[in-house]
């Protein structure tokens, strides 16, 4: 925390202003459809930040993250529909389940070359989708196969996790995002974070120093899956309708990975920046060109990704940071003592 406050006053001031602006945003934006788009931006930033724990710090490429989001959504919804358990509790149960699945996948694969991990996560993501599409009912729990689950509209209350105004959803996901960003910050500056950074760069060297790299990668995986599942529950409560393809498909997994890589993998603000840039692209092309040109937004995503990876392999956070540095840190301060810049730390 001390490090966090140890910035130049002007940066602290701007951050505080931005944060304040984020909290009064729902007072300015009154259109529910615009609010929905903003909520989705924050939600995707959240998903990507949870992805970042594994994809950013553990140095591997998870491409099946939607499986965990789906587990979260299904668990809380099914528990609510069958036993009337509040989604707030279901959320935690889903998170633990997702963690368990994540650890089971990670146990054999995190020791291997990154390519294996990427392949295994794709296979698990797709396998999970096929499983949920095949199952209509497990014991008392209704899964409904490919047609998915729609939640009954309840009275707006905290217990049912359903709210009349979009603003409430916005505050919930905003707080969730801020918590995850703080967690990311603490993890980066903790022993686990340092071990992970070492393990991602030079696994053999780190092992030789006595760091059990795969164990720390597993910890990161468990945290990441847990948090992703919480986001899944939020998604279910926001949309009130989901089906395996929408919440467990490859498209969602890849979109999350794309956002992270374009924004900046392994940085705190990269996922937020990526979501801020890419979500509007996908919403706007879907709204204005979706009917006549299906799939255009994915072509644009892919092209942006290729170009960004070509010129800024560390993501767009890098050039933007430089730009900000030029304006604020006029007398070029040593970059190395900036704790939010992991690339500086690694050098």
């Amino acid at each position: 925390m001390k490090q966090l406050l140890n910035q130049k006053p002007i940066i602290l001031l701007i951050s505080a202003l931005l944060l304040g602006a984020l909290f009064i945003l729902p007072l300015i934006v009154t259109s529910p459809s615009l609010m929905q788009i903003i909520i989705l931006i924050v939600l995707y930033a959240y998903f990507t930040s949870t992805w970042n724990f594994v994809g950013g710090f553990a140095g591997v490429l998870p491409l099946g993250h939607s499986a965990f989001i789906g587990i979260g959504a299904y668990t809380s919804t099914v528990l609510f529909q069958t036993f009337g358990i509040s989604p707030w509790f279901g959320m935690i149960v889903g998170g633990l389940l997702a963690s368990l699945v994540g650890v089971i996948i990670g146990l054999p694969t995190l020791k291997l070359r990154g390519a294996y991990f990427a392949l295994a996560t794709i296979a698990v993501g797709e396998g999970m989708r096929v499983l949920f599409e095949n199952v209509k009912q497990v014991g008392p729990f209704k899964i409904n196969g490919p047609s998915g689950i729609s939640l009954p509209l309840m009275e707006s209350s905290f217990w049912t996790f359903q709210f009349g105004s979009k603003a409430t959803y916005y505050y919930i996901i905003l707080i969730m995002l801020l918590v995850v960003l703080l967690l990311t910050y603490f993890m980066m500056n903790s022993k686990v974070g340092y071990y992970l950074a070492a393990g991602g760069e030079e696994p053999e060297a780190a092992e030789a120093l006595g760091i059990k790299v795969s164990r720390y990668k597993l910890i990161a995986m468990a945290i990441s899956c847990f948090l992703a599942a919480l986001g899944g529950t939020f998604y279910a409560q926001l949309m009130l309708y989901f089906y395996p393809k929408s919440i467990m498909g490859l498209d969602l997994s890849f979109e999350i990975a794309f956002i992270a890589l374009i924004g900046g993998r392994g940085t705190i603000l990269g996922p937020v920046l990526g979501a801020l840039l890419l979500r509007p692209v996908s919403e706007l092309t879907r709204i204005y060109l979706g009917a006549s040109l299906p799939g255009l937004h994915l072509v644009i995503f892919g092209l942006i990704l290729i170009v960004v990876m070509r010129y800024y392999p560390k993501g767009l956070v890098e050039p933007i940071k430089k730009l900000i540095d030029r304006f604020i840190h006029k007398p070029a301060r040593g970059k190395a003592d900036d704790p939010s810049n992991p690339s500086a730390r690694q050098e």
């Binding site: 070359r113 390519a115 696994p203 990975a257 994915l298 892919g302």
Partner: peptide
Amino acid sequence: REPITVIIVTTGIWYVLDN
């Protein structure tokens, strides 16, 4: 050791070609 960027770029190509 782990060429992640290349992998993700081929995924980008996948999305561009399919769509």
